[in-house]
């Protein structure tokens, strides 16, 4: 027995396996000897990439024809499992699609699901996952009891991807069965919010603004500073909820997890929800009026001051260099 057969829910971004996919494939290799990718969609473009990171087999649902993946992919997975290939563990990225699929599958298989994890290790015939709580101050380790497949989701950037140099995997069709009354949710149009400069979760420098900016127009300062530093602008949930900037800017528990070389938090107090998304940054600079703000507890350089006074001078100084 023991843990051997590992599946990874695989997604495509711009014609390659997504960063979350290759992170999980890398970890899956350390966990078991058989690594299988389960692709939501057509695998032809990404099969090579999946093999390079260790997948020896790939199931692919084929084009979902606009169906939201939750019910569709979970049904396809269930059909393969019922057909006899039952994994010990299935790893999902903690994102919209991963969450929807794992939720549906947990009901179909009648298995519990553990979310928000940052690590996993074999523990005899079971696995143990690690979840940070209270803004990452406390780490909780949980083992699955009962029978597998064990279902778990992992936060972005939990593992560092390393290629294994494997060849393209065998691709096996895993068509979506008739969804009956659970089907029907269909994407009719896709809207992409254009951004310039580096991507938020890939930038070396991130400049994020929060409620301390006072009003939506002042987010211009964040954009200018990010531009001067060739970084990406980000935001706290508070100002995303307030509608100042689109959701794609959000750093935190329910937004992006970033680990840049430098993170500048301007007018952000450091709510738990935000800290989870940026605590892994190598260097943190915080500017906030309130010297008691929790953000100063993680800052390498903290400026107790008004962002409206500090930022314009900083932007000017950088532009003049």
């Amino acid at each position: 027995m023991g843990i051997d057969n590992i599946w990874v829910f695989a997604q495509e971004t711009d014609g390659a396996p997504s960063s979350g996919t290759i992170e999980l494939l890398t970890k899956a290799r350390a966990l078991g000897s058989t690594v299988t990718a389960f692709v939501a969609g057509d695998a032809s473009a990404i099969a090579g990439g999946l093999g390079e990171y260790g997948a020896s087999k790939a199931y692919a649902t084929g084009d979902l024809a606009g169906a939201l993946p939750g019910a569709a992919v979970a049904s396809a997975m269930k059909a393969v499992i019922d057909g006899g290939d039952s994994p010990d563990v299935i790893l999902f990225p903690q994102n919209y699609e991963g969450r929807d699929v794992v939720s549906r599958l947990s009901v179909k298989l009648d298995r519990t699901v553990l979310t928000n994890n940052v690590d996993i290790a074999a523990d005899g015939d079971s696995v143990k996952v690690t979840t940070p709580i209270f803004g990452g101050n406390t780490l909780v380790s949980t083992t699955f009891t009962g029978e597998g497949p064990y279902l778990a989701t992992f936060r972005p950037k939990s593992f560092v991807p390393e290629a294994s140099g494997g060849g393209a995997p065998e691709v096996v069709a895993a068509p979506v069965p008739d969804l009956g009354s659970t089907g029907g949710a269909t994407v009719t149009a896709v809207h992409v919010e254009e951004t310039s400069g580096p991507k938020l979760d890939e930038a070396d420098i991130v400049v994020a603004g929060g409620r301390g900016l006072g009003e939506a127009e002042k987010f211009d300062m964040i954009e200018s500073l990010a531009k001067a530093l060739k970084g990406a602008p980000g935001a706290s949930r508070a100002i995303v909820d307030a509608g100042w900037v689109p959701y794609s800017y959000q750093v935190g528990q329910t937004g992006k997890v970033v680990k840049p070389k430098v993170y500048i938090a301007a007018g952000i107090s450091g709510a738990t929800q935000h800290m989870v998304g940026m605590k892994g940054s190598k260097n943190i600079i915080a500017i906030n009026k309130d010297k008691e703000a929790p953000i100063f507890g993680v800052a390498d350089l903290g400026i107790v001051g008004d962002v409206h006074k500090v930022l314009p001078k900083l932007i000017e100084a950088l532009q003049n260099r």
């Binding site: 519990t112 406390t138 780490l139 100063f296 507890g297 350089l301 107790v304 008004d306």
Partner: peptide
């Protein structure tokens, strides 16, 4: 599921804090 361990994460050390 069974919680088997609860541990404190390594603290990030606060750096220099200065008044503007």
């Amino acid at each position: 599921q069974e919680i088997v361990d609860v541990a404190q994460a390594p603290e990030r050390e606060a750096g220099e804090i200065i008044e503007d």
